[in-house]
Amino acid sequence: MTNSPTATLERVSHLPSGHYRFVDLLRSEWTKLRTVRSSWWTLGVTVLLGIGISALVTAETRAHWSSMGPGDKLSFDPVSTSLIGLFLCQFAIGTLGALVVSAEYSTGTIRATLSAAPRRPAVVVAKATVYGVVAFVVSEFVSFASFFLGQFLLSSPARHATLSSPGALRAVFGGGLFVAVLGLVAFGIATIIRHTAGSIIAFVGILLVLPLIVQALPSSLSLNIRRFLPDRIGIDILSATKAFPNAFSPWAGMLILCLYAFVLISVGTVLMVRRDA
């Protein structure tokens, strides 16, 4: 350090041809995601809580099976019961989705990022891709692990399912996908709001508070609106059988959720291009 400061610097006489590439941005975003502890914490919580809650509920169901009424036994859905942990996962995955964006702003890293890669839409797409893939892999892992562990715990005489049971594979795969896409909804909210707390509150509000508000509307109106809400779309996907009247088909619901994520991220990207970093 006391040497001539530039002694170790070799001059690059010419720039490489072409320009900075999207694949390099993906690599950079992956480095960002894996080099902060909060990512590992949230993903760890997602896996442990998701599988743990599913195991707890299925084990309890099995333990109390003999005392359950015949009606309860008839309406019991072993698939959705074993996936119950995903409802907790969605908050952890959503929090991570908000954090990967909002932490860049709260820490000022965004200015370093944009000084290296000024094309903002490319940065957002790279970030969403890396986060989306990670969220998808982890959510599917939790979903499948919950299902298999849950069915194992729901041993006879309790009713249990296999992947080939009607609607089971769709519910398990769809459940993981649902959580990942919901994470992208949180990601999109954060690109608009840019603050961690505000983004998470908005995300949780959409999942927990919005349904209550809609429920207070006259029932003819509320039924029509509720089927558009993410929580209903989720229940619809996780159930092997139709969860409630007036619901969209599971994949139609998923498509609507994807549309939400797409619109939110697009709006966030347009705002990002317009706003000062």
């Binding site: 950079s28 480095t31 960002k32 902060v36």
Partner: peptide
């Protein structure tokens, strides 16, 4: 202007990667 949870090496690495 750096994430407090990220190391100096990780910060520089993620920047370096953007420009290959």
């Amino acid at each position: 202007a750096i994430h407090p949870g990220r190391s100096a090496r990780a910060h520089l690495t993620m920047l370096a990667q953007t420009n290959h």
